[in-house]
Design a binder for these strands. Sequence first.
DNA 1: ACTCTGTCTCTAGACGCT
DNA 2: TGAGACAGAGT
DNA 3: AGCGTCC
Length: 348
Amino acid sequence: MGITKLADLIRFHAPDAISHKEISDFTGKVIALDTSIVVNQFRAATPTLSPLTGLFFRTLTFLEHDIKPVFVFDGKPPEEKTAALEKRAEAASWKCPNLTGTASSQTKDCLHLLKLLGVPFIQAPGDAEALCAQLVREGTADAVASEDMDTLPFGANILIRQLNAKRDSEVVEYSLPKLLEKLQISQEEFVDLCILLGCDYCDKITGLGPKKALTLIQKHRTIENVVLHINRQTHPVPHFWKYKEARKIFLDAPQTVDPKLIWTEPDEEALVGFLCHVKYVKVERVRRRMERFRQTRESKREERERDKAAGRSRQTRMEDFFRVTRKREQPVEAADSSSSNRKRPKST
DNA sequence: ACTCTGTCTCTAGACGCT
DNA sequence: TGAGACAGAGT
DNA sequence: AGCGTCC
């Protein structure tokens, strides 16, 4: 579920924290991905067939762009989240939610596939989103790609949405520093704001939506102070409200060893063996994709050689990450400061 | 008027052939 | 599952 | 670009 209406709030109150890019702008970056989100996307898109092929194709596309993905797997969700998970499972189907953190067979398949692709993965102690955010905070990853907004209160500076394998698709980047700057609140205050908006870890105060919650936090800075200044008749505080626990989950980083992330060449023969023999994917499909993969990499390599020979210095580091705006200029100057920054200036 | 809530509806990935 | 559109109720 | 297929 993520944070209720947070995307709307940002779009309306801090559009400058959002920038539109394309996948090639993330060349050379380490991107952390919440595996369960990715797999669920493929499952939702093609309910009848395995999400493995989707994972296979998309990961290769990342690698073709010299993007270094690291897949993070969910661990045992925190106690506070079980209520939300149960409610979600009940709404979806009768199935009991996985509260134990035990790897399903599907998860094992994903692990195996990633291993054959030479892509690193990490088992999170708790929520994958939390660990993704920590990887970004400590500099292990440059950004986290997810459709969920949770990583922002978890402290990930850069969140990327709509990062898929389609050509010319718009990638949406959220900058946490820009967001806090624009809203004029601290990270701690932002966490309180997210709790008021509604998160997975505790109840919310009914009657408070994005606009009021933001105003209240900007005025009173903490949930404790907000509670003192609202009408408790019209906006009753939940009984046994565990907002402090939720706050702790967001702000206290999960302890984890910083693993050395290694990317190696995909093992084509093993991939064919697994995907085609075990999972019955058409051999020719896998082969053809791997062929394209090798060709794309080769041409990229040649291109780099040419650039180096031409004296162009290599792509540098973190700095250009925040400044990439080499898309054709967007008509941002044209009045309209409110919400519609969503124009697509076309595609190359 | 403004804003939150509930309910409804639609959509969702990537490839390759034409 | 989430995200937009709409109707409805509360302030 | 549109559309059927992937498993």
